[in-house]
């Protein structure tokens, strides 16, 4: 389990670096973010939520049954307020989404 940072998409804003609770993400000489300690990732997804250009995705490692699904979030306009859309890119190329309204409480 860890994250992947798409170097092509990254704009080097450093927000992911700032929020990582393990300070595991660094900015390289080309002003791109990279995860220096991938095995130390807790999987909290803080960086993914911060990234303004959706350059970071999260995956489960094979050692815990992961099958290659990559996950990221985007903020999209909802009817009343911004909602968080989670994208699940599966190995077969299909994409599933789940919308979360931050103004709504969990049902459970």
């Amino acid at each position: 389990m860890s994250i992947i940072i798409d170097q092509g998409k990254c704009i080097g804003c450093g927000r992911c670096h700032d929020v990582c609770p393990g300070t595991l993400i660094k900015i390289n000489e080309n002003k791109k973010a990279f995860i220096k300690y991938p095995k130390d990732c807790w999987g909290c997804t803080s960086c993914i939520k911060e990234c303004p250009v959706h350059a970071i995705s999260f995956f489960l490692g094979e050692d815990i049954g992961g099958k290659g699904c990559k996950v990221h979030t985007e903020k999209v306009k909802g009817e009343k307020n911004d909602i968080v859309r989670w994208f699940f890119e599966l190995n077969d190329g299909s994409v599933k989404t789940i919308d979360i309204d931050p103004k709504e409480s969990n049902k459970y």
Partner: peptide, 21 residues
């Protein structure tokens, strides 16, 4: 559906697990 959402708000790994399996 509510479970998948609830886990995204605290432990996204479990939702991925469910979606992959």
């Amino acid at each position: 559906e509510s479970l998948l959402k609830a886990y995204l708000n605290m432990a996204p790994s479990q939702t991925i697990r469910w979606i992959e399996n």
